[in-house]
C-alpha cells in the first residue's frame, strides 16, 4: 500500500512538472474584437485622394542628462563601445527635436482595409543595446529579432494587452519571428540577462504611424480624407494629442511639443 502511495505521489509530481513545462506554450493569440480600427473586408485607400500628415516633435526645456550604462558585467559588449554607452530615454537633436516618439493617427478607419506589411520589422541586439530603441508595427505584422552580439540575450516583451513571451537567443542564432495581435502603445521589451537593455514596441491597428528620427520629424502618408487625432507617445513624457482634418490630397503639418518636466501619463 505504501509502495502504491509512493508511486502515485511520484507520478503526480512528474505530471505537475510536465504540465508546467508545457504550460508556457500558449495557443495562438486572437485579436481583441474591439481593437482593430481597420476592416479586413473593407476597401483600399484611394491614393488619388489620400493626404499626408507631417510634423515635428520637440522638447520644451532642457533634456535630462542620460546615464552611463555600466557594461562591465558583459565585456564582449563593453568593448564594442568606443565611448561609454548611454541610456536612450530622451534623445534630442538641434533645436530640441525629440527622437523615439511614436506618432500615429486615431480615427475611424473601419471602412478601409490595409495590405499586410511586405517585410518584417526588425529589432537587433548589438552592443547589448536594442536597435532601434523604439519601433512600431501593425497588429499581426511580423517582428524579426536578431542578435548581432557575441553573447546570449533573452528578448522579453512585457505587454499589458498582448501575450507575453520570453525567448533566448544565443550568438549566431537564427532570427526570432513573432507578432502582436492587439493594439498597444507601447510594449516594453527587456533583456533579463542584461537588465539595462530596454526597448519599446508600438503596436497599431492601422499603418498610420511613424517613429521620429533624430530630427524629430514624421511623415504619415496615404491618409484618407477625414478628421483624425494625431497622437504622440514618448516613453518618459507619455502622450500628447492634437486634432487634424485632412482634405482630398491635402498635406497638413502638425507640430507638437512635450514639456521637459512633464510626468508621463
Amino acid at each position: 500500500m505504501k509502495g502504491k502511495s509512493l508511486i502515485f505521489a511520484g507520478a503526480s509530481v512528474a505530471l505537475a512538472i510536465v504540465m508546467i513545462s508545457c504550460g508556457n506554450k500558449q495557443s495562438t493569440e486572437t485579436p481583441a474584437a474591439n481593437a482593430p480600427a481597420a476592416n479586413s473586408a473593407g476597401k483600399p485607400v484611394d491614393p488619388s485622394t489620400a493626404g499626408t500628415v507631417t510634423g515635428t516633435i520637440k522638447l520644451d526645456g532642457a533634456a535630462p542628462k542620460m546615464k552611463v550604462i555600466n557594461m562591465a558585467a558583459e565585456p564582449s559588449c563593453n568593448k564594442q563601445h568606443t565611448e561609454p554607452a548611454m541610456t536612450e530615454d530622451v534623445v534630442t537633436g538641434p533645436g530640441g527635436t525629440l527622437q523615439n516618439v511614436i506618432v500615429y493617427l486615431k480615427g475611424d478607419f473601419s471602412q478601409y482595409s490595409f495590405p499586410p506589411a511586405a517585410a518584417p520589422t526588425t529589432i537587433d541586439q548589438k552592443g547589448c543595446q536594442y536597435h532601434p530603441h523604439v519601433l512600431a508595427l501593425m497588429t499581426g505584422a511580423p517582428l524579426q529579432v536578431t542578435n548581432s552580439d557575441p553573447t546570449t540575450h533573452n528578448i522579453h516583451p512585457v505587454p499589458k494587452n498582448n501575450r507575453e513571451w520570453n525567448e533566448s537567443q544565443p550568438p549566431g542564432a537564427t532570427p526570432i519571428n513573432q507578432s502582436f495581435a492587439r493594439e498597444e502603445i507601447a510594449v516594453p521589451v527587456k533583456c533579463n540577462v542584461h537588465p539595462w537593455m530596454k526597448a519599446y514596441i508600438g503596436v497599431l491597428a492601422t499603418p498610420y504611424f511613424e517613429v521620429t528620427g533624430k530630427d524629430g520629424s514624421f511623415t504619415i502618408k496615404n491618409v484618407p480624407p477625414g478628421t483624425y487625432t494625431v497622437s504622440a507617445w514618448h516613453e518618459l513624457y507619455g502622450s500628447s494629442e492634437q486634432p487634424v482634418t485632412i482634405g482630398p490630397s491635402e498635406s497638413k503639418s502638425v507640430n507638437m511639443t512635450f514639456k521637459a518636466n512633464a510626468p508621463a501619463d
Binding site: E74, N154, N192, V193, H194
Partner: peptide, 19 residues
C-alpha cells in the same frame, strides 16, 4: 527570467554564465 526555460537552462546543464 534571464533563463527562459526550465528545468534545463538554455536546454543544457551548463549555459553561458553571463549577466
Amino acid at each position: 527570467l534571464s533563463v527562459p526555460d526550465w528545468p534545463l537552462s538554455y536546454g543544457s546543464l551548463t549555459p553561458p554564465m553571463v549577466g
